[in-house]
Amino acid sequence: MKESQFKAARDLPSSHILGAGTAMCAGCGGLGAVREVYDVLGKDTIFVNAAGCMTLLSVYPFTPFRGSWLYTAMASAPAGGQGVRDALDIRLEQGSLRKDEDLQVVVLTGDGTANGIGLSATSAAIDRQLDFIYLCYDNEGYGNTGQQTSAATPHGARTATDPETGGMPGRKKDLFAIWTANRPTYAATVLAAEPLDLARKIETARSLSGPRLILALAPCPPGWGFEPSRSVEIGRLAVRTGIFPLKEYIDGRVVHNRIPHPRLPVEDYLKPQQRFAHLFEPQRDDKRIGEIQAAVDAYWLEVENGHA
């Protein structure tokens, strides 16, 4: 593979193509990821959007995009991507579109859609080997409607629909594993707080074709309950505690880009977030914290043993 144009953080773009002035919350980790992805992909990109927080990126008559955007519905954004990709290919073949008028197709969805109502459409797009990037901003809940429990809500996190209990009783769905089980061209986890890692991965994704997953953890100040100023810090803690592994799937193999060493205890990540406050107050819930830690430890043990 060609050497990355991003050798160090100072090589990251200092001006950005996504327009400011969007309605995303202050400190939005999802917006940061979308902006960084767009910088690398460039303006000849079409974002095909599923209903979610990012619906409000473009509110008539204003858009932050210099290229294209299509708002579809919650369940079928990958099918919208299919229609656009197919039509572009037909027109390129017919000669009614020049090669330089081609677009990179990016489906943009939140975790609620990605793991729930939109999973069927996504899965089918992978079956069809659709040439697209699937960018999921994972804020671990239905963020745009006020953070209700989604299939990506982590175990134990309190949400608007799991408020009084011990938080989300189930387990976060493993979207990365669902994708890689179906052998896509590429899959990677990223987050805005690690912009260099993100830029290199998008660079790789851009150089490939076929179905490509970019799963971006999106720290959400109002949904997770922390001050917007801590958004980057919370994201980095997710990596350093091992809760959010930075990895990529390429040529049929999963590679962990950063094995946190030493791994910080999970409570360093949990404690600053209101959604986990019940694990620490009024009494510390050692059992639950221990369970969360054990799951993280087990994951990394598998990585060390070469099984993950």
């Binding site: 000849d44 008539y60 210099r66 290229g67 294209s68 955007w69 299509l70 708002y71 572009l88 330089d100």
Partner: peptide, 13 residues
């Protein structure tokens, strides 16, 4: 609506 070099945001809120 959609081709490179021609900004188009479609079906916006």
């Amino acid at each position: 609506e959609f081709r490179g070099g021609h900004p188009a945001s479609k079906a916006v809120a």
